[in-house]
Simulated assay, not measured.
Amino acid sequence: MSDPRFDPSQVFQAFGMRHVDSQGFDAAVVQAPGADLRCVFLWGQDCYNCNLFKQAALMHREALLELGLTWFEADVYADEPLGRRFSLHGVPTFVLYRSGKRLGRITGWPGLPQFTAAVRHQQEIAENSGQAS
């Protein structure tokens, strides 16, 4: 059972997620300077699985912050063109970018161990190619 005091919107502030939309996505995420690993959290209002991620993220805040991601978020229920851009079949979806390149995506919330492993894999690739943030 979920905590009645749980406010899913707290996750945006807790992780410093910057809101993006279909119109400003490229400028904010793809074309922005830097070699940081960017994670775009695509979600939907009143989405049960999205709220599961938000609650898990708040519970495991320190572990997720240690990953050093730059976070972005977009409600693709409200911004359908952005959802179509990524051919979404479900949310939550997490899309990873570094230095203008789309690295991959995670569809659904796989849990902290699998999410962390996927992010660490991308960080290792960057370190081995000399692009570490």
Rank of each mutant, 00 (worst) to 15 (best):
A78C: 03
F72P: 05
H89E: 12
E73I: 01
A35I: 02
T116G: 03
G108Q: 03
R98T: 03
R84T: 08
G104Q: 10
G24A: 04
A28V: 11
N49F: 14
F41C: 01
C50W: 11
T116E: 13
A74N: 13
T107D: 10
V76Q: 02
E62C: 01
L37M: 11
L42A: 02
D26R: 15
R98M: 03
L112V: 15
P92D: 04
D79H: 05
F72M: 06
A32L: 08
L88F: 05
P33S: 14
A117N: 10
Q31F: 10
L88I: 07
C39S: 06
I106L: 12
P81H: 06
R105L: 08
L88N: 05
V76R: 01
L42G: 01
Q55I: 00
F41E: 05
L65Q: 15
Q55G: 07
A57Q: 09
A28Q: 15
Q31M: 11
D46K: 11
W43K: 10
T116H: 12
R38P: 01
L67R: 09
P113I: 11
F41G: 00
F53D: 04
A78Y: 04
W71N: 03
F86R: 03
V29S: 02
T107W: 00
K54D: 13
A78I: 06
A74H: 07
E73M: 07
V95Y: 00
D79K: 07
F41A: 01
Q55R: 14
S87V: 09
F115W: 06
N49Y: 15
L64T: 08
Y48S: 09
E73A: 12
